[in-house]
Design a protein around this nucleic acid. Sequence first.
RNA 1: GGAGAGAUGGCUGAGUGGCCGAAAGCGCCCGCCUGCUAAGUGGGUAUACGGUUAUAAGCCGUAUCGCGGGUUCGAAUCCCGCUCUCUCCGCCA
Length: 443
Amino acid sequence: MRIPLSKWVWICLAGRMFDLKFFRENVDTIRAGIARKKFACDLDAVLELDNRRRAVIQEAEELRAQQKSANSDMARLQKGSDAFMAKVAEMKDLSTRVKELQAQQAEAEEAWLQAYLAIPNMPHASVPDGDSESDNVVAHSWGDPEGVSEHARPHYDLPAFSRWVDLARGTKVTGAGWPFFVGDGARLVRSLIQFFLDENTRAGYLEVSPPLCVNPQSATATGQLPDKEGQMYHATGEDLYLIPTAEVPVTNLLRDEILDAARLPIKACAYSPCFRREAGSYGKDVRGLNRVHQFDKVELVEWVHPDHSFDELEQLRRQSESLIEKLGLPYRTLLMCSGDIGFPHAKQYDLEVWAGGQKRWLEVSSCSNFTDFQARRAKIRYRDSEGKPQVVHTLNGSALAIPRVLAAILENNLNADGSITVPEALRPWMGKDRIDPNPDYFG
RNA sequence: GGAGAGAUGGCUGAGUGGCCGAAAGCGCCCGCCUGCUAAGUGGGUAUACGGUUAUAAGCCGUAUCGCGGGUUCGAAUCCCGCUCUCUCCGCCA
């Protein structure tokens, strides 16, 4: 991935991830935050490049100011007069020096920016210290993992699984990890989508149906680029990326806009398929529906006033949790530790449902506060009481990722006869309360 | 896919090489006036970065006229490339 210099400079000038002054004056705080996140990055080098950049800018602008003032003098001279020609000769030299310095300036800005963009977002004070996923804290749990069906089996071992979710034919048609959902499998997917969308819109989220491809700028704004380029499918002919989550197009929906402060928070929900290359995945993680290249998900995105973003994160998380509860699936909510949250995140919760057949937790949602990290890159702002533009905070969370929820339902709701009990909440769309264990779709 | 037109500040819209960051109008904000939800009138009205400074106000400077590059002492204005929008034709869910 190569973003042209101009784009980097644009990000540099308009969408930095920290406030520049804040950065210069709180280096130690940021250093401590990076250490907590277990990221390596050389802040002294960034500072040094920043100093160099500013020195060069100053020099270049000084010369440019001379050039401009000479220019207005020349406007008053008789064109072609001796005085005029003398001035032209004099300015020729200045002109070359201005060009040299401007080239230096571009270089200095580029060098600084590359270093600067490599700084992750700071973890919030409420994020626990930790090195890895084993240090995540269970913040909340619901339901009894021991209480699921005594018949529970891994979903990929169910006799009818390959008929509801046809991985073999998906492999033929596309490749491994591109399932067909068929019959009740497809209907279950649709029911979940409808249920989630209805619940979320009822909770006040505006429904949005986004484009499934985004341009590099959008992927940069939300932080997928340049960090995770290898995880996205790239349509090279058009230089577009297939979205790994609706977060990307939906957050960018309001990019480069100044929002009405009185309308914050703005909350949206979106259903979309998600495309992920999942390079490097292997083993039992990829069995059945645990990890696939294309899956359906309903996502929540919020644009929030900075003063309220951490409170709003709790509500967002509650919204996602409530959906799992309505499906009757045991789950736990993990508060991710500093070493396990992602590059752009300030605070993150992962919601995991209990898959009683596999006897393991499956992540079905990740709810995060990005504070101003994405909003600066995406230039999403509001006007404060003095009319000055300020960056908003962005939040998002899955509500929810469908295949793993489906897997948990298949496992936990398995009856002795092989049928699956349809969760009450889905019956309006399923049109039945049990799924037949012996479907015959293709003869 | 073919042909043409266009892209300027919150909006409309001037500006074809030089005090143009940009006329004018609208909108908006702050005054004044007016016995009244109007008219008139004066002023103000972008964003970002750098410097100065109390990390305030103010002031100074630079950049931005779709994006990138070029010509020139000097570019909104000229040249090249790209993107997007609109109209017409073709194709298509």
